[in-house]
Design a protein around this nucleic acid. Structure first.
Lengths: 239, 239
DNA sequence: GCGGTGGCTGAACTCATGTTCAGTAGTCTG
DNA sequence: CAGACTACTGAACATGAGTTCAGCCACCGC
């Protein structure tokens, strides 16, 4: 799944119009790209690198090569810029996801985005913004879980995946784990020497144990039966 | 704080001296508790609730019932206060961990801390500070992984856990997943209706799927053999 | 009693931030 | 060419942040 979708440049430029306002006339030709787009991408890059709160409008303006007031001119406020970034990233992620669907997606809901290159750092942005409560990102997570439920139902029908009592719960837990490891990228790097936002082929120290756990679990069968029974008992008491 | 120090009064007061400076003389008796300790705990509480960057010294002072300059008087700067919080939380976590060791720890490295009540919100603080690079918290994570390696070796010897090629890698991945889900607590709540910083008995919607995955995995045996082989091939190319 | 020491505070300082304002340059419309 | 509109900027404003200052007040050794 890693080397698969390396090349799909077709849908790249379309993203701008898709993600933000009604396609403000391309106007004054474009020597490079629209200042608005440069600002947005600069913001995504800086937000991904330093976090939203720690990034100043001035830093974004500098990275985009414009003056701070122009940021306000185009987006009104830092908050609205942030919303625009959320929406743009969400649009790009959906695009990557749908592109990957055609190529037959794998188990990892993030696989498609890891291959993405050349644009703003989607995974880095997600890793940062997953934790400070954006409705758009939350929506994206919900979609990922829903997608995972779908994929896993197919996998189960095809005999590749094991059945489960609680498909939504299982999908949610797996998604939380994937995204959680992404958010803790700094610790993953320190502990395992891998960069989860990069090429999976260089992150086998993470993916091999993960696959092993997904494949045969970590608990011996007899012990599992026992623990499972006691957990199910506990469930009847609490929620 | 309500039920007082009923459980373990011995180590309670000691933690102050342990976590911070050379035990500044208990001085003017203590009508309640030392202002210094109140400030530190207030900071931990606010950091846990709102994040470090979003918490002002004034907010901490208000929560502790003191004036902002007193915070500076005791800790010198917000940064040094934050370090003191890191160290104090690290000390409390180690304390809880060691206490839980005696009682025979379980699979979940966070289990001990979930039971902790009456003090500052350890898990909430961890969930917030895991992502903004504190050396003390990183150290704590390293210790958790090392502990997990130890526990899992014992479990393996006892026939409860499956053996693995890469014990450190497996322990690191499981720790990353546990902590990652904790950090994404907001999403866990929305998706599953659970509070991972609270009582596990009310979080079965998370723990049951997690146990199932840990127990028998999610991939059917034949498919697993196949994928595993291709992953091991891929490993020979990249890192 | 008395000077001093340390916990503690109200007010003020400095700085960075998000944001606004007034104005310029270039281009399109009539 | 007049007018208008849009992209864009330098300078300034307002606010909230971390931090500092000078002094109060209770206690303690002399």
């Amino acid at each position: 799944m890693s080397s698969a979708t390396a090349s799909d440049p077709a849908s790249g430029p379309a993203s701008d119009a898709m993600a933000s306002e009604p396609l403000r006339a391309p106007g004054p030709a474009d020597p490079d790209r629209t200042a608005r787009a440069r600002i947005r991408d600069a913001a995504i890059t800086r937000f991904a690198a330093d976090g939203v709160a720690a990034t100043s409008v001035r830093a974004i303006a500098e990275e985009a090569g414009v003056s701070p007031p122009l940021v306000m001119h185009h987006f009104g406020s830092k908050d609205r810029l942030r919303v625009a970034c959320d929406q743009h990233v969400a649009a790009l992620v959906r695009e990557q996801k749908h592109a990957a669907m055609a190529a037959g997606g794998g188990l990892d809901p993030l696989a498609a985005m890891r291959a993405y290159e050349g644009g703003p750092p989607l995974l880095g942005y997600l890793a940062r913004t997953l934790i400070d409560g954006s409705p758009h990102v939350a929506e994206l997570v919900d979609e990922m879980v829903a997608d995972a439920v779908g994929y896993m139902a197919e996998g189960e029908a095809a005999g590749i995946l094991m059945p489960t009592e609680d498909p939504e719960g299982r999908a949610a837990v797996l998604t939380l784990w994937s995204l959680g490891a992404l958010v803790l990228g700094e610790h993953a790097k320190r502990l395992l020497g891998v960069d989860l936002t990069g090429d999976p082929a260089h992150s086998m120290r993470y993916f091999l144990p993960a696959l092993e756990i997904m494949g045969r679990g970590i608990i011996a069968p007899e012990a599992y039966e026992q623990i499972s029974a006691s957990f199910h008992d506990a469930q009847e008491d609490g929620t």
